[in-house]
Simulated assay, not measured.
Amino acid sequence: MREELSLEAPEHSLALLAFVLDVDRRQWSAHFYARLRTLTRDGVQARMSRGVADRWEHRAMEFVPFRPADVARYLLRADRMHRWAPLAPALFHLALVHVHGRTSVERAEAQVVRRL
């Protein structure tokens, strides 16, 4: 978090959601849910505008309300849908379930998919 977003440990909490092994590709990943303690969106943007330890790897950062329908619509936008890393949709789904519960997340996702 410090390297990518210039956030120090007291400023956020992390919860491990999943540990993933891809034996075919010999890759692994850990999926975490991160929550800011006191910083707001504006605070994060201001912090990052001053630079980060590891040069920023993305052209832009987009902020989306962390509600199941909003996140599902964002993931499935025509200009984004085929640009995600393979594990990204699963990570977003797991994080939403962690916060909002499986039933409400699956219901919202199904509604968004039906409206495509």
Rank of each mutant, 00 (worst) to 15 (best):
D22Q: 08
L5D: 01
M61C: 12
H82M: 14
L5K: 09
A69I: 00
V20Y: 12
R59D: 09
H98V: 03
V97G: 04
A60K: 12
S29L: 15
L91Y: 02
D54G: 09
A69N: 05
E109H: 06
R55V: 00
R35Y: 00
V105E: 06
R77D: 15
V105D: 00
P68C: 13
E4T: 04
A90V: 06
M48V: 10
A15F: 04
P86V: 10
P86Q: 11
L91H: 03
P68H: 11
A85H: 12
P68I: 12
V20Q: 08
S13M: 07
R77W: 13
T103R: 15
P68N: 15
D42I: 01
S13V: 05
H100T: 11
M1W: 02
L5F: 02
F19I: 13
G51A: 10
V71Q: 01
R73N: 08
T40W: 00
A9W: 00
L5V: 01
V44P: 06
V52S: 08
V20L: 15
G43T: 11
R41I: 13
A110C: 03
S13P: 14
R59K: 12
L21K: 11
H31P: 00
R2Y: 05
T40R: 00
Y33K: 09
R47H: 04
V71M: 03
W84K: 02
H31L: 14
D42E: 14
D54E: 15
A85S: 07
H58N: 14
H58I: 14
V20I: 13
R80T: 08
L7V: 01
A60Y: 08
D79N: 09
A78S: 15
V20T: 07
P10E: 02
L75G: 04
A60S: 12
V99T: 11
V52D: 03
R67C: 08
